[in-house]
Amino acid sequence: AGRIGVSSASSSVAECAALEQAVPELRAVAGNIAMPGFTAPKLLWVRDHEPEAFARIGTVLLPKDYVRLRMTGDKASDLSDSAGTLWLDVGKRQWSTALLDACGLTEAQMPALFEGSAITGTLTAEVAELWGMPQVPVAAGGGDNAAGAVGVGVVKDGDALLSLGTSGVIFVATNDFRPNPARAVHAFCHALPGMWHQMSVHLSAASCIDWVARITGAAGAADLFARAEAAGPASGPELFLPYLSGERTPHNDPEVRGAFLRLDNDTDAGRLSQAVLEGVAFALADGLDVLREAGTVVERLAVIGGGARSRYWGEVIAAAMEVELVYLQGGEVGPALGAA
Rank of each mutant, 00 (worst) to 15 (best):
G2P: 11
G2S: 15
S7H: 11
S7N: 09
S11C: 15
S11L: 15
S11H: 14
E15P: 07
C16D: 11
A17T: 07
A18L: 10
A18G: 06
L19N: 01
E20P: 09
A22C: 08
A22I: 08
A22H: 06
V23F: 12
V29Q: 12
A30Y: 01
A34Y: 06
T39M: 08
A40V: 08
A40Q: 10
K42W: 04
L43M: 10
H49T: 14
E50N: 09
E50I: 00
A53S: 13
T59C: 08
L62R: 10
K64A: 06
K64V: 06
V67A: 15
R68H: 05
L69N: 05
L69I: 04
L69M: 11
M71C: 12
T72H: 09
T72W: 07
D74I: 14
S77D: 03
D78T: 01
G84R: 12
G84C: 13
W87C: 08
D89S: 08
D89N: 12
D89I: 04
G91H: 04
R93P: 01
W95L: 00
L100P: 02
L100F: 10
G104L: 09
T106K: 12
T106M: 11
A108L: 07
P111Q: 04
A112Y: 09
G116A: 07
I119M: 10
E126L: 04
V127H: 10
L130E: 13
G132L: 00
V136I: 13
P137K: 07
A139W: 02
N145Q: 10
N145F: 00
G151H: 01
G153P: 01
G158Q: 12
D159S: 15
A160R: 10
L162Q: 02
L162S: 03
L164G: 00
T166G: 06
I170L: 14
T174I: 11
R178Q: 08
N180M: 02
P181C: 01
P181K: 00
A182V: 09
H186S: 11
A187V: 08
F188M: 11
C189E: 04
H190K: 05
A191Q: 07
M195R: 13
M195K: 13
W196E: 07
Q198Y: 01
H202C: 05
H202Q: 11
C208Y: 02
A213Y: 02
A222T: 15
L224Q: 00
G232F: 05
P237D: 13
P237F: 08
E238I: 03
L241K: 13
R248S: 07
H251W: 10
N252Y: 12
E255C: 14
R257K: 14
F260H: 04
L261P: 00
R262Y: 10
L263S: 00
T267K: 02
T267P: 01
A269C: 09
R271N: 03
S273W: 00
Q274I: 05
Q274S: 12
A275P: 05
L277M: 07
L277A: 02
D286L: 06
V290E: 08
R292V: 06
E293L: 12
E299C: 09
E299R: 14
A302F: 04
G307Q: 01
W313N: 08
A318F: 08
V323T: 14
E324W: 05
L328M: 11
G334T: 06
P335W: 06
A339Y: 07
